[in-house]
Amino acid sequence: MHQPTHPSQGPGPAAGIGTAWCAWHEGFSVTARPVQAADGAVHFACLSCREAYSLTPLTDPS
């Protein structure tokens, strides 16, 4: 069975509770966290994209 690279991608916010839009792969993810982009703007990035692009979350859940 094929495993999705980006969990909980869906057609919109109804894809699941606690989802956020990943600005890097342009899809919804339950693992998205805020990160600061090179231009200084704050965007959300999922775990896969944070690992792929060496992005550091601004805050981590405790």
Rank of each mutant, 00 (worst) to 15 (best):
M1E: 14
M1F: 14
H2L: 14
H2M: 01
H2V: 08
H2S: 09
Q3G: 05
Q3P: 04
Q3A: 08
Q3E: 12
P4A: 11
P4L: 07
P4Q: 09
P4D: 09
T5H: 04
T5M: 13
T5F: 12
T5K: 12
T5C: 06
H6L: 01
P7H: 01
P7V: 04
S8M: 07
S8Y: 02
S8F: 05
Q9N: 12
G10D: 10
G10W: 08
G10M: 12
G10S: 12
G10L: 09
G12S: 10
G12I: 08
G12Q: 13
P13W: 08
P13H: 08
A14G: 14
A14E: 15
A15C: 14
A15D: 01
A15T: 15
A15I: 01
G16T: 12
G16Y: 04
I17D: 13
G18Q: 00
G18K: 00
T19C: 10
A20Q: 11
A20G: 04
W21E: 03
W21R: 03
W21T: 00
C22D: 02
A23I: 01
A23N: 10
W24T: 00
W24E: 06
H25V: 08
H25Y: 06
G27Y: 03
G27I: 03
F28I: 01
F28A: 05
S29Y: 02
S29L: 03
V30E: 11
V30M: 06
V30K: 05
V30G: 05
V30C: 09
T31K: 03
T31E: 14
T31Q: 06
T31L: 06
A32I: 04
A32Y: 04
R33A: 07
R33F: 07
P34W: 05
P34D: 07
P34E: 07
P34N: 09
V35I: 15
V35R: 01
V35Y: 02
V35T: 08
Q36T: 14
Q36C: 12
A37N: 08
A37R: 11
A37S: 13
A38P: 00
A38N: 08
A38H: 06
D39M: 04
D39R: 00
D39K: 01
D39N: 14
D39L: 00
G40N: 10
A41H: 10
V42A: 13
H43G: 07
F44R: 08
F44M: 08
A45K: 04
A45Y: 02
A45M: 02
A45R: 03
L47I: 10
L47Q: 15
S48Q: 14
C49M: 05
E51P: 02
E51S: 13
A52F: 06
A52I: 02
A52D: 15
Y53K: 07
Y53L: 10
Y53F: 13
S54H: 13
S54A: 14
L55N: 01
L55Q: 10
L55Y: 12
L55A: 15
L55D: 09
T56F: 13
T59P: 02
T59L: 09
T59W: 09
T59D: 14
T59N: 06
D60H: 07
D60T: 14
D60W: 13
P61L: 15
P61V: 00
S62R: 10
S62C: 09
S62K: 03
